[in-house]
Amino acid sequence: MLNYFKNTWEGIYTVLVGMKITFKHLFTPEVTIQYPEIKVPMEERVRNRLYVNMDDCIGCDQCARACPVNCIEIDTVKALPSDDLGKTSNGKKKALWVTKFDIDIAKCCYCQLCVFPCPTDCIYMTDVYEFAEYDRNDLIYKFATLTPEEGTEKKEAFDVFQAEKEAQKKAAAEAKAKAAAEKKAAEEAEAAKKADEEKKDDSKKDEE
């Protein structure tokens, strides 16, 4: 019988305790963050979307080689001596036209290994994390500042330059060979002359 009243009391009392707790929560500020409007600031070292600052890129291909999933593709063309590509922000001279710098972010595993080898700190992780696309091809980011036409143009220019250089070299080599031959001939002539004179000397000596 005592247990019966105890149960009754506990039934009412515990409900009141619970109600007190929920009533307190009625006035505690909510913890919801209204995501698209309010975003939690990202940590400083988060690894999200890659970005390449093409002004600083020297086309050294080190990031592409570091990438474990081969999501970076770089094509470069040597600049002509007459081209002035300027300098990077940390004073390195740019010597290559970067005709292609594609990052397939769909493949990217966000390991950040490409960031460390960069000599000019031009490839880095940003805090952008909303880049969903409907088409997978839209996830290939093209960073190259040159248009494909400009790229082929540069390539042709370089080929022409290369050909010219080749030709020059050839010409130079030929000239050198010619000079060498002439020299040899001259030397031979000299030697013959000398031999003749020696012979004359000998004969003179004999006569004496």
Partner: peptide
């Protein structure tokens, strides 16, 4: 709304 506030949420907004 009451359920949301009691669970520290916002409810329909």
């Amino acid at each position: 709304k009451v359920s949301a506030f009691m669970q520290d949420r916002l409810g329909p907004t």
